[in-house]
Simulated assay, not measured.
Amino acid sequence: MPNEFNQQIIDEFRANKGRLSGYFAKARLLLLTTTGARTGTPHTTPVGYLPDGAGRVLVIASAGGSDRHPDWYRNLLAHPQVGVDSGVFRYEARALVLDGEERERAWARAVEADAGWAAYQRKTERLIPVVALQEIGRPGPPDINASSPGEAIRLVHDVFRRELALIRGEMTNGSGGGTLGAQLRVNCLTFCQGLRNHHAGEDTVMFPLLADRHPGTAPVFRRLREEHERIAALVEDLRRAVTDATADPATARAEVERLTLELEAHLTYEEEELIPLLDAGN
């Protein structure tokens, strides 16, 4: 059973589709469900995560600097297949404990993004594990925690809005030293790839399906595709800015602002036009 503090977070997380208030309002959190090493029963724990690209996220078994590994870590050592709930997306993942140089690189990125991890390591003699959670692919559409197709598209859009807002805040607060941190680069590139994949899915699957069902909507989809092209160009500009080690961080911040303005307008228009069409049969 989760402790009372964790249960309050879990309840709020589930009630608000991953959004939290207070101290965790700007944190990247997920719900990790592991299988008990001794009991074989499921246990759900809220944990912080770091984007790692390619359908993978990293979680850190800090236990607040305790000398004892957290229960969820010992569980996944025994049963590496775990459940992941982002509040919007739910999926199964394979847990892999990183070691050697891969662990050190991931740890350095984590500490660069949040010095609190280093503070936890100083409190204990155990080497704090870094665990990669690799999504296990499955056929069909993603499992989205929504009650209707219209709600699903809005929730997915909100994921992009929230992540972009987090990236903007990280760029403002963390690039004063004249460089972009390694983890911030990963966050940006993960966001860019996710947005590209989302728009590709809309262009090839959703838009043709809705256009066939709703004659007369061609101008809407023509505009949305044109906006996808403009956003793709802005995403590429951002990718170049964050992968150029010699670039001024101000350039990357400017590209994020340009992308934010275009994307916000696009998402709003898309929701206004598509949600009524998506929910028309419900």
Rank of each mutant, 00 (worst) to 15 (best):
P142V: 12
D143Y: 07
N145F: 04
N145A: 15
S147E: 15
S147C: 05
S148K: 12
P149W: 01
G150Q: 09
G150K: 06
G150P: 08
E151C: 03
A152C: 05
A152K: 05
A152E: 12
I153F: 00
L155K: 04
V156L: 12
V156W: 03
V156H: 00
H157C: 07
H157S: 07
H157Q: 06
D158W: 09
D158A: 14
V159Y: 09
V159C: 13
F160C: 08
F160Q: 02
R161S: 14
R161W: 06
R162I: 07
E163V: 08
E163R: 13
E163T: 05
E163I: 08
I167H: 00
I167W: 01
R168C: 08
G169M: 13
G169T: 11
G169V: 04
M171E: 07
T172D: 15
N173R: 13
G174H: 11
G174W: 10
S175N: 11
G176T: 05
G177I: 08
G178S: 11
L180W: 11
G181F: 06
G181R: 10
A182E: 10
Q183L: 14
Q183R: 09
L184H: 09
R185M: 09
R185G: 06
V186D: 13
N187A: 06
N187I: 01
C188P: 06
T190W: 09
T190M: 08
F191A: 00
C192R: 06
C192L: 10
Q193C: 08
G194L: 09
G194F: 11
G194S: 07
L195M: 12
L195G: 00
N197T: 03
H199D: 04
G201P: 01
G201V: 01
G201R: 04
D203G: 06
D203M: 02
T204E: 14
T204M: 11
T204A: 15
T204H: 13
V205Q: 14
M206N: 00
F207V: 00
F207Q: 02
F207W: 14
F207I: 06
F207D: 02
P208G: 07
L209I: 04
A211R: 10
A211V: 02
H214V: 07
H214S: 01
H214K: 04
H214E: 02
P215G: 12
A218T: 07
A218H: 10
A218P: 05
P219Q: 04
F221Q: 03
R223V: 06
R223K: 13
L224E: 01
E226C: 06
E229N: 02
R230K: 14
R230T: 14
I231T: 03
A233K: 14
A233L: 14
A233D: 13
A233R: 14
L234P: 04
L234H: 10
L234E: 12
V235R: 01
D237L: 10
L238Y: 00
L238T: 00
L238G: 02
L238H: 05
R240I: 00
R240V: 05
A241M: 02
